[in-house]
């Protein structure tokens, strides 16, 4: 286990668009098995020593330096590139939404999907360590959602998304919204194959977050500054927050939103429509 954030890498479970409560579905179906919930076992096979032993006597104790020069994230980047082409072939616009826990990502998605009202075919991938709660909130809007539970993992990676894509009903020229695990640090490093990263910062978090957690803001193309309805009760300085975000990433676009009151939702949907036109 990771000593810093408790992240463990190999335990992700991917649900189905019908929801992940296996027992209930099994009862409904009246059988002992179900196709709808097949949690993918991501444990890797034990390291195979095959082929490593047979010449050991010849080579004993002869150390040699072997150049490797391979990117540690290279495997993730290759899978992300494959996701990107898969999405591009279908002209699907995919957004990777990232923020700390509790910034209002799911509420923003629900509000945006309600406002969208089915005008655009959409689907959602929800990433959380545990529970199916967020996917259920999305499904309540009528939009298909698939939950990925990362177990101890602190971020989604490209392989999880690659395995989720064929399970989702994704229409050509549609919209795929991927809500990453709530974490302002780790998700920034893992390309999923999305067209854009969108960072959500809520005004209850403090305006210095872009400087404290710069990688997320450096990687994003759009920042949604959420919970704007709470501004009258806080000493949050909007201008300063945006200025800090621009120090890290001068090209970052910013929309002030409130999932509760609806501020900025139309502006965000217009942004999505603009990006979709070029997808």
């Amino acid at each position: 286990m990771c000593g810093v954030c408790g992240c463990g890498g190999s335990e992700a479970r991917i649900g189905s668009v019908f929801g992940g409560d296996r027992n209930k579905r099994v009862q409904r179906a009246g059988t002992g098995t179900t196709q709808a919930w097949r949690a993918i076992d991501t444990r890797r096979p034990a390291a195979s020593p095959a082929g490593l032993d047979h010449e050991s006597t010849d080579r004993a104790s002869v150390a040699r330096l072997q150049r490797v020069e391979r990117d540690i994230l290279g495997k993730n980047e290759r899978i992300a590139a494959a996701n990107r082409s898969w999405l591009a072939e279908r002209r699907i616009l995919a957004l990777n939404l990232m923020s700390s826990p509790g910034s209002g990502k799911t509420s923003l998605l629900v509000r945006a999907l309600e406002t969208l009202g089915g005008r655009l075919p959409a689907a959602v991938i929800e990433g959380d360590q545990q529970t199916e709660f967020d996917a259920e909130r999305i499904r309540a809007t009528g939009v298909p959602a698939l939950q990925i539970n990362t177990g101890k993992g602190c971020h989604l990676d490209a392989d999880m998304v690659a395995r989720a894509l064929p399970r989702l009903p994704l229409a050509e020229r549609g919209l795929l919204l991927i809500e990453n695990v709530g974490n302002l640090v780790c998700p920034a490093a893992f390309d999923l194959g999305e067209a854009h990263k969108v960072v959500i910062l809520s005004v209850t978090e403090g305006e210095d977050k872009p400087l404290k957690y710069p990688d997320m803001f450096a990687a994003a193309d759009l920042m949604l500054l959420n919970k704007a309805d709470l501004l009258p009760y806080l000493s949050f300085d909007v201008e300063r927050a945006i200025e800090y975000a621009h120090r890290v990433n001068p090209r970052l676009e910013v929309i002030l939103t409130s999932a509760t009151r609806g501020d900025g939702i139309d502006a965000w949907l217009a942004w999505i429509e603009r990006e979709r036109a070029s997808a």
Binding site: M1, C2, G3, V4, C5, C7, G8, G9, S10, R44, A47, Q66, V68, R70, I72, L73, G74, K75, N76, G153, C154, H155, D157, V185, C186, A189, F190
Partner: peptide
């Protein structure tokens, strides 16, 4: 942060090599 995932990536590269 995500050091465990990175460590697993390093192990895969080292084992393959």
């Amino acid at each position: 942060m995500h050091e465990l995932s990175l460590a697993e990536g390093i192990r895969d590269i080292v084992e393959e090599t």
